[in-house]
Design a protein around this nucleic acid. Structure first.
Lengths: 353, 353
DNA sequence: TTGAAAGCGCTACCAG
DNA sequence: CTGGTAGCGCTTTCAA
């Protein structure tokens, strides 16, 4: 435990470099000497070069920092996040690199501490509130960054693997509009950060959280083109990206006289919650009320959810590759992936026309 | 980026210690000087002390290493693992500690490399093949360890948070035996590591993977007590702990003349696969064939699965606490948590008697 | 309150 | 093939 390279070197009367070579560059010494060194190490309880010292010296840690929201559980619970992380982990482990999961606390000061203490070679930012002060620190670190959201947020140096959020949402909106829906509600998370679940009056152009902002604007684009006045659209904030929040949010659109005939959400998880809310009220999805999701998580298909399919594992994998083998050409560090509209049973024509 | 403590010190004509203090011990210098230092840092693009160097000096990294099997996806896919990790992550982040996810490759040499390069203050071993050579290295590291499986594997120094696997399995076996089942199959993963999915002839006392070994022995205990000869029990290996493997394994018990009337599994995930296999064949769970799981993951309830409920998030949380605030008393570092038998619809009396 | 000195444990260069 | 030297960037006594 207290054993170091030096211990072994002294024991055998060789130099530290030689012991170091025994571990890091086996071809630099005779196999015979090497095995004597390894044997001595074994005997003295030396478990190999100290990783921290080695990292300091080499200037490389073999770890990617993954910033997760405040709500750490999400990384392990949200199906989309899970798929993304899986892709990232695959890319990383193929290069013998580990993932350092960093929980970004709400408190700015603590967040900065977490970020500055993180020994990593690169950062992957995924689903992080993009106004958090700790992000500035990350940029200052000067290590490679890949983001999955606002492609502009970190300038051209940062890698980006994402989708055209706005265009994708627009396709959902067009689908709904074409089905004749005019009484529409949108359930979106983090319209208001730190807010409660319920209707909000917010200007789509002023939403802080990039992903939600773009998707809401995409919906608006579609309705504007279809001649549905934006004032008619009910905007409901979900305090979190959870199924329960989806159900709670939906209640605000369903329990009123001018009930919405279509509810668009910013994620499949929220949409599943909306479907729960319909079921409780005896309403039929796709018939009484149309519902759309976003992501196409595995649960979407059995639920018959109409949604946008986006590559999830792939997105994580590409992010990892960008981080570990950054292409020279900056243009190749900005990847916008294709999505597709998947129409299933939860959307149908508006029968109340 | 190339800026170091020294850069700032030189710029301001103060010593390195003072700059260091500005970051690590603000009370050691005048607020005025401190803010001058911080301003200079900002100006020179210095993003604070290098985490690696700091860790080396302090001898502390603020990270827990989590060893995951070869199959990294599992950590993000298996519902039980997800819950466990969530608990662990919660405990860690409450202490501003991060999780370093380490993928343990099948290849021994690569595995040792991954472990020795991991800069962590502690290791949490969860669902790791307990014969892997890299484990020896971990012990040699001399850092705190918590394991979730074989309480003896690492000696009394290692922490342990687990359940009485054998007794828990025995309760499932007794339940099945009491229902009159005599033609029984057991679907277990890693009976044979690296093996294929299918029937195996294995001595329960000789299984290498601890958890599976204990659970299979628990089943045997129950049947022995009920007078069901062990030779009558069909043992089926699942190559992995996956739903598909569960279905594939079940086929071997179902597609034969002397079809099993009960199938016990070592995890809910496998059991869900078994239920899939029943459905495909038009067999009714709990009526034509009884099925049991293990863990009580969220999906178990909607599936009506009879299973053993064990605390999952709790287990992870306790592991984290043990690692970060180890109790003086070694006895308090070995925690055996209670479980309960949850009887649902997938088990019922044997109608073929 | 500030600063000088002494490493933390290792690796990489270069000369032998 | 081997070993001396020179740091990697930081923190922490201890003395001023």
């Amino acid at each position: 435990m207290a054993a170091t390279l030096q211990t072994i070197a002294d024991e055998l009367g060789v130099s530290r470099s030689t012991v170091s070579n025994a571990y890091s560059r086996p071809d630099q010494l005779s196999p015979e000497l090497r095995s004597r060194i390894l044997a001595a190490a074994e005997r003295l309880g030396y478990s190999g070069p100290n990783p921290t010292a080695r990292s300091l010296r080499r200037g490389k840690v073999n770890a990617i920092g993954v910033l997760l929201t405040d709500n750490l559980s999400m990384a392990f619970t949200d199906p989309y996040a899970v798929a993304y992380l899986r892709g990232l982990a695959e890319a990383a482990s193929a290069r013998e690199t580990s993932l350092l999961l960093l929980n970004l606390p709400k408190d700015e000061e603590a967040g900065r501490r977490v970020v500055s203490n993180a020994a990593v070679d690169a950062f992957c930012l995924y689903c992080v509130p993009d106004w958090h002060g700790a992000l500035e620190l990350i940029r200052a670190r000067g290590v490679p960054i890949v983001i999955g959201e606002d492609p502009e947020a970190f300038g051209p140096d940062a890698g980006y693997v994402g989708i055209d959020e706005r265009a994708a949402a627009r396709r959902l909106g067009e689908h709904i509009a074409q089905l004749g829906h005019r009484d529409v509600a949108i359930v979106a998370h983090w319209i208001v950060h730190g807010g409660v679940t319920g209707p909000v009056d917010a200007d789509p152009d002023a939403l802080r959280y990039y992903v939600t902002g773009q998707r809401v604007r995409g919906f608006r684009d579609a309705f504007a083109a279809a001649g549905v006045p934006w004032e008619r659209v009910l905007l409901i904030n979900a305090a979190d990206n959870g199924r329960d929040e989806g159900a709670a949010a939906a209640a605000h659109a369903l329990d009123r006289l001018d009930r919405a005939t279509a509810i668009l959400t910013t994620s499949d998880v929220l949409a599943l919650g909306v479907l729960d809310a319909l079921r409780v009220r005896g309403l039929r999805p796709g018939r009484d009320v149309s519902v759309t999701g976003f992501d196409d998580i595995p649960e979407a298909e059995p639920a018959g959810l109409t949604t946008i399919r986006q590559p999830s594992v792939e997105r994580g994998r590409l992010a990892g590759e960008l981080l570990l083998d950054p292409p020279e050409d900056p243009a190749r560090r900005h990847l916008t992936l294709p999505v597709s509209l998947v129409v299933r049973a939860t959307t149908g024509p508006n029968h109340q026309i």
